[in-house]
């Protein structure tokens, strides 16, 4: 009886250890805004508008990936425009082909196509959960920040798409804002396998104990 109880408590302890090893991760928030550049490029493949550079001097720290994010941009006549982050403030196509530009997964559209609007993605930060960045993209964006101590942001649409990104709106500065929640947690394949095998082992042990 004592042995069985010990076995169960050991199993539960192992499970908690495995689960908590995922949870033990430091996290922080980096956020910044600056004036939109509005400079556009269209070399026939896509139309890319440079938003600007943020997080100058910010290092990677102990973090491993960007977990989630908010974005606030001012633009007009956009439909599913992609937000990219990476290294490069000109010639998007070249930076993209060299793998320096990462698709955040965020898509920006104007709710009213006749207006130049401030668009909050995925919504107002005060009442909307942040946009979850895919793991590969989150890791790549973090790596770019860690390598360059800065991030460049672009809005990208199809070639000849007519969306516009102002630097000024009637004499007032048009800013864009980015917030990243970054963490040390990276469910690498090895960690997943370890956790999975641990769970399988635990379940097998429980089944064995019950059969006894």
């Amino acid at each position: 009886m004592f042995r069985s109880t010990l076995s169960v408590s050991t199993s539960v302890g192992s499970l908690l250890l495995i689960l908590s090893s995922w949870g033990i991760a430091t996290a922080d928030i980096i956020k910044e805004f600056t004036q939109q550049s509005g400079v556009a490029e269209d070399f026939g493949l896509r139309r890319a508008v440079y938003l600007g550079r943020l997080f100058n001097g910010v290092d990677g720290g102990p973090f491993r990936r960007m977990d989630s994010m908010y974005a606030i941009v001012t633009l007009a006549q956009a439909t599913n425009v992609q937000l990219f982050a990476g290294d490069g403030n000109s010639n998007f196509d070249s930076a993209f082909s060299q793998g320096k530009m990462i698709d955040t997964g965020i898509r920006v559209s104007n709710s009213n196509q006749t207006d130049t609007q401030v668009v909050f993605v995925p919504g107002n930060p005060s009442n909307t959960p942040p946009f979850k960045i895919g793991v590969p993209a989150g890791v790549a964006i973090h790596d770019s920040l860690a390598a360059n101590n800065r991030l460049d942001f672009w809005l990208v649409g199809i070639t000849n798409s007519g969306f516009t990104v102002p630097a000024n709106v009637s004499g007032n500065v048009a800013n864009f804002f980015i917030q990243f929640d970054r963490s040390t947690a990276v469910p690498e394949p090895a960690s997943v396998l370890l956790a999975g095998s641990g769970l399988v082992a635990l379940l097998a042990r429980r089944r064995l104990w019950r059969s006894k």
Binding site: T74, N112, T114, D115, T116, Q117, V169, S170, A174, N175
Partner: peptide, 8 residues
């Protein structure tokens, strides 16, 4: 634009 917005 019919309307223009910016963040103050």
């Amino acid at each position: 634009p019919a309307f223009g917005e910016y963040v103050d």
